[in-house]
Design a protein around this nucleic acid. Structure first.
Lengths: 359, 359
DNA sequence: CGACAGCGTGAGAGCGCTCCCACCGGATCT
DNA sequence: AGATCCGGTGGGAGCGCTCTCACGCTGTCG
């Protein structure tokens, strides 16, 4: 009477990967024991453990992440949020370094890095929903001016979050890592004053970015400490072209400037360009400093004296902190600030400029 | 008799996100109908659909990815595999562009990008296991010399995979996108020959990388077509320093060289350095070409003539192709090759070198 | 006027895993 | 001696979702 036709299987008989059940059968134990053996082997006899281990190898067993995640409410993945719409910004080696650092922190764990980029403001709410949706266990946000809303929104969700770069708004519970931009700005002022320059100016970054504001603050403090006047300040947008225009304004305002601090190497490049166009030599007429120790600082026509910051360590730290925060929520750690260092190159040397060497 | 004590809840009563069940209740429909309404709304009455839509907004419902993934066997995420141990390589803007392009292709879908970097050979098998484990629906591999084993291993797993850059071994079923490196090499030869240079040499990339081999092949073909001898070939490792050393060997071998093609801009920088150190002017004594149209090509002491390639488009294409392959498996598409273009700058201009302008 | 599509719907099974609970037997305590 | 504990184990429920299936219900055709 068993004439019922062979009903098509719900799932095509594709040779799918072995389940925990298969593993348990192969190892001759129960599913529970197999599960315990897989996860650290607490309360498992050596024999059972060995049997499971063998079966894992034999079957090529790999736990199903979705099933596990469904019950543990852990996804074993974290998000790197890059709230920048612009390809140009992505091109910044900064991001590569951040990614490398986080990846480094994630080694030895089975946590995966999910990349979240919001290219438009529209994406931004989508990204936020994604984060809120419990798809990741935590997030690292690369903080720029636009990150303000992120900081607060994320803090409200209770999702473990670390910011790289101090968020603009820190009036609530937020943990971050950053470099000592104030110290870096001060270093620049000290150095230029130290080599005898007296009429100093700066091309600062956008006034709505914490890094830019901090560098400017340090710069002013350094000048004051050296007993020098504050000097002209122009703002640019961290781009080479923008800085070139800013430098032209600077030169028009005060033609006797003998030292300029650009708040980034890319901007210093623009300043260099503008100086050359105006017939000034570097460092002969004007000593020039950048910031970031970007690759271009070394390859520039006149290699740039600049400020270097331990970005990889910072990124690694961010990753480690996030992992800890996920493991033990509520232990809001203090912000970590990394100190900066001066890198001396030709653009502030007292010797004549080297850029005309092959003339 | 119902004196059983209030057993502690298995799950702490944390206010967790609403489930499909909650949604269904709120909308006054069954879980099935709610599910259908969420997923495209096939076979759902307008009223039911509207009710569900309202409930979604009201409850802030977000589907649980893990649960969905468990039954659909889809993860809605793809992996970007970067088989490079070196931070330096990561710093290459290339990766930023690739990431940007893929992200662009993924917009409008809810597919997430998972980053997989293998920094050691040990990681490599770990990564492979991860990919094999069904944690992602597909993978994009940035192909370099080391990717050989990847290609074959991945092809064997049947996981939809697209390579960016032709893998070394294409004797099996593999789909990839690439730029026309042969054409680019030929372009370089044509250009240098076209401006009247006759004693041409090249600093090629590593002989185990397809891009390097292809560029060299195109270069040789271009020379032959221009009726010029093959000239000296030295290999370097795509780094500035390595290229500088290679260039010194070149100069020692044949001091009368009047044109050099470096297979990357970074290498061209090294060559430029070596040339200057040897007292040669560029382009006066020696015309110099790079490849990639890297940012440094523009900012170099002598801006570099170089070859540009549509990398963003290529990355977008890779993303799109992968999405298609996931959607309709087995439709192994043909490789897509993007053509390259010449970008002329001062390093091959016939006019006197501009780098000494501020002397 | 009965048969039969076909659409919208709800019940229910089950994806692979973790974790609570009950159980068992041997060691330890009173 | 019995009571108690505790390491090791297996049974079973259930995480939130999709998907198959069966069930009305309306409309159309023979």
């Amino acid at each position: 009477m068993k004439t019922s036709p062979p009903r098509p299987l719900r799932q095509a008989p594709v040779r799918s990967s072995p389940t925990l059940e298969d593993l348990a059968v192969a190892a001759g134990v129960s599913r529970s024991t197999a599960s315990r053996a897989i996860n650290g082997g607490d309360r498992v006899s050596p024999e059972a453990q060995a049997a499971v281990d063998r079966a894992v190898v034999a079957l090529g067993y790999i736990p199903n992440r979705a099933a596990r995640s469904l019950v543990t409410r852990r996804t074993s993945s974290i998000a790197l949020v890059i709230p920048e719409p612009d390809v140009r910004v992505m091109m910044d080696p900064f991001f590569a370094v951040v990614i490398t650092g986080i990846t480094e922190a994630l080694r030895e764990t089975d946590v995966q890095l999910v990349l979240l980029m919001s290219r438009t403001d529209d994406d931004s709410s989508r990204t936020l929903r994604y984060l809120r949706g419990g798809h990741v266990d935590g997030a690292i946000v690369v903080s720029h001016h636009k990150a303000d809303s992120w900081a607060r929104s994320l803090a409200e969700t209770g999702l473990p979050t670390i910011f790289i770069g101090r968020p603009w708004d820190t009036t609530f519970d937020v943990t971050y890592v950053d470099t000592d931009n104030v110290g870096g700005g001060r270093l620049a002022a000290q150095h230029l004053a130290g080599i005898g320059r007296r009429r100093l100016a700066t091309v600062a970054g956008p006034a709505d970015m914490t890094a830019a504001v901090d560098r400017l603050r340090g710069w002013k403090a350094g000048l004051a400490e050296a007993g020098l006047p504050e000097g002209p300040v122009v703002h640019a947008d961290f781009t080479t072209d923008g800085a070139a225009a800013a430098a032209r304004r600077l030169l028009a305002e005060d033609p006797d400037i003998d030292g300029i601090f650009a708040a980034s190497d890319l901007m210093a490049l623009g300043v260099l360009e503008a100086l050359h166009a105006a017939g000034r030599t570097v460092p002969g007429d004007v000593a020039l400093m950048g910031y970031d120790n970007h690759a271009v600082a070394e390859t520039a026509a006149t290699p740039l004296t600049t400020i270097t910051q331990p970005m990889v360590e910072m990124a690694v730290k961010a990753g480690t902190m996030l992992l800890e925060e996920i493991e033990a929520p509520g232990s809001h750690p203090e912000p970590v600030i990394y100190s900066t260092e001066l890198v001396e190159r030709a653009s502030t040397s007292v010797a004549p400029t080297a850029s005309a060497a092959n003339a």
